[in-house]
């Protein structure tokens, strides 16, 4: 196991940050910790990177205990904290050189690992990190975390605050790194990024809701989801919430995702109910559940 957590709990004063967390990450796996802000993702990262001592339970990283062998772990992992922690007043190159030096290596020595990422920021190597856009900072921070060829890479919300283009590029980079035999634990509040991981843990309020592959989690969804649309979104939601067979209704972009209490029902019934409610341009179609549906169902 590259990463292994056994019944980890951690509290800050009265507040329980994480409770009874257990999961394993296999070598070479891209594992996602998916959950909203305040779910406990950062606490888990800090325990695994030896920055916090767990209140209860044990955890190992690359075979080392997070409490006993913290020095070995600090030598062997790469860590990118939640905010892209760079020296804003140092240039791109100076940041990279600095992190290489403290890990006792050089940029050249590990060039092959960071090459495809570094070429994208190399044209700006004399620019100060503080003057970079979010996407560029993110790439530089990743380079800095990779500079010493870590066996395990911890990325805490690497895509938060970054535009979709950079996010997409970032995930492509992670996929390539994975092929170079690096185990990656990544956290994100964006449910749509879950599908890009090998396996995910859905987490909320310090507890794990589910651990599995994204496909399996979606396939376990117990209900049939209907995409329901109408001309007035607010009235549509109001009407559905009053509907006696309603199991759940959530806005999902231009539609709402509707599930029914009954195992099977006539779509026409629902349509006539909505028409009676005065809605027009009604559309009702069966839809594929996604991770977000699964998360909401599990969090109910």
């Amino acid at each position: 196991m590259s990463i292994s957590l056994n019944n980890i709990s951690k509290s800050y004063k009265k507040l329980k940050a994480v409770q009874d967390i257990s999961f394993d990450v296999n070598p070479g796996e891209l594992f996602g910790l998916i959950g909203p802000d305040g779910a406990g993702k950062t606490t888990i990262f800090r325990i695994l990177t030896t920055l916090l001592i767990p209140g209860e339970g044990t955890a190992t990283v690359a075979g080392f205990d997070v409490v006993e062998d913290y020095k070995e772990i600090r030598n062997s992992v790469g860590y990118m904290p939640g905010r892209f922690s760079l020296y804003q007043d140092l240039t791109v190159e100076e940041n990279l050189t600095f992190f290489a030096t403290i890990f006792g290596t050089t940029i050249e020595e590990n060039h092959d690992l960071i090459e495809d990422i570094y070429v994208q920021i190399e044209p700006f190597k004399n620019r100060r990190a503080g003057k970079l856009s979010g996407g560029m900072k993110q790439k530089l921070a990743l380079c800095c975390a990779l500079i010493h060829k870590p066996k395990v890479l911890f990325l805490d919300e690497p895509t938060t605050g970054v535009d979709p283009v950079s996010r997409k590029e970032f995930w492509e980079m992670l996929k390539r790194l994975q092929k170079k035999n690096i185990t990656i634990l990544v956290s994100t509040p964006y449910m749509d990024e879950a599908a890009l991981c090998d396996r995910i843990a859905l987490i909320q309020n310090g507890e794990i809701l589910e651990i599995d592959t994204p496909e399996a989690i979606v396939n376990k969804f117990p209900k049939t989801i209907y995409n329901v649309g109408a001309d007035n979104m607010y009235k549509l939601i109001q009407s559905l919430q009053k509907y006696k067979y309603l199991y759940s209704v959530f806005p999902f972009g231009e539609f709402v995702h509707y599930t029914d209490k009954r195992d099977s029902f006539e779509v026409a019934d629902l349509r006539s109910y909505l028409e009676k409610e005065g809605l027009v341009n009604i559309s009702i179609e069966v839809a594929q559940p996604n991770i977000e549906d699964a998360f909401m169902e599990l969090a109910r």
């Binding site: 800090r46 990177t49 030896t50 920055l51 020095k71 772990i73 600090r74 030598n75 992992v77 860590y79 904290p81 939640g82 905010r83 922690s85 760079l86 020296y87 804003q88 992190f99 403290i102 890990f103 006792g104 800095c144 975390a145």
Partner: peptide
């Protein structure tokens, strides 16, 4: 404040 201390701590330093 910057969070770089976290990285320094999680390093062989």
């Amino acid at each position: 404040e910057l969070g770089t201390m976290e990285i320094l701590l999680v390093s062989p330093l």
